[in-house]
């Protein structure tokens, strides 16, 4: 059974541990993300969700444990290498290039996926190939009609959408989304749910999210993290009725539904 699950998974995390001083930010975390699904990680603030994402993307090195992506251990690979291997990340704190246009941002993502950039002469803005691919991904998130706008002049919600488009532009095998709905209003959250469910139909997604409505309407699988540990991983329906999860995280809010 376990072997079977592993064969079917894109990302396989085994006994991952990371401590900062005396605090165990990641405490023996094992997870397996199935190909093609949307897997959400929920948990209270400080549960270690972002630290987990940072270890998966290569920003932080774990103390012990292993991460297998697409059948190979990526533990020794750096951030850039993991990204090129097809593991694209979006950030909790919006990390788009505010000084550039929407299109230029998306083009950077495409450029990152297209091999080396030691090309010193041809101007990027005349690179139609790059722009066309970037436009496709902007269309996915609905920003194609505003592609010429400078990013600092667009709304927070649109910047979050661009963040997703940049990750998509890298044509990854899997997306790591760190709170894609962070700081969004109702309307914007609704729009993002639409976007992610269409993206999720084609790509594997591992997302960390606080917004329960979003999680429950998007995710196939749910993992609950508390104090650096994964206390439960199961389907959405089963997690919602799991008494231990309700006690430690969901509180009474679920009982009312």
């Amino acid at each position: 059974m376990k072997q079977n699950m592993r064969a079917d998974s894109v990302l396989f995390i085994r006994s991952l541990c990371k401590s900062f001083g005396g605090i165990k930010a990641t405490d023996d975390v094992s997870l397996s993300v199935c190909r093609g699904g949307i897997h959400a990680v929920i948990g209270p603030n400080g549960a270690g969700k972002t630290t987990l994402i940072a270890q998966l993307s290569g920003q932080i090195r774990p103390d012990s444990g292993d991460i297998e992506f697409d059948g190979r251990s990526i533990l020794r690979a750096g951030m850039a290498q993991r990204a090129r291997a097809g593991l694209a990340r979006s950030f909790q704190i919006t990390s788009v290039f505010r000084e550039m246009t929407i299109l230029e941002n998306a083009m950077l993502g495409v450029q990152g996926a297209q091999g080396h950039s030691y090309r010193f002469w041809a101007p990027v803005h005349q690179d139609q190939d790059l722009a066309d691919i970037a436009m496709d991904h902007l269309m996915t998130v609905g920003l194609h009609h505003r592609s010429g706008r400078i990013v600092s002049s667009i709304s927070h919600g649109e910047q979050r959408q661009l963040e997703v488009a940049m990750a998509l532009a890298m044509q990854p095998k899997m997306l790591l989304l760190d709170e894609p709905m962070a700081g969004m209003g109702k309307e914007e959250t609704f729009r993002m749910i639409e976007i992610l469910s269409s993206v999720g139909a084609e790509k594997t997604i591992l997302m960390v999210e606080h917004d329960m409505d979003a999680v429950f309407s998007l995710a196939d699988q749910l993992s609950v993290m508390v104090n650096g540990r994964v206390i439960a991983t199961d389907s959405v329906a089963k997690i919602r009725s799991n008494p231990e999860v309700q006690k430690s995280y969901l509180g009474g809010s679920c009982a009312k539904d």
Binding site: M79, R89, M107, Q111, S117, A122
Partner: peptide
């Protein structure tokens, strides 16, 4: 050029460039 874009991008947000 493409090279220039990478240089300018890494000035603004090096971490993001690596993640791309």
């Amino acid at each position: 050029s493409r090279f220039g874009r990478v240089i300018i991008g890494s000035k603004y947000n090096d971490l993001r460039m690596q993640s791309l």
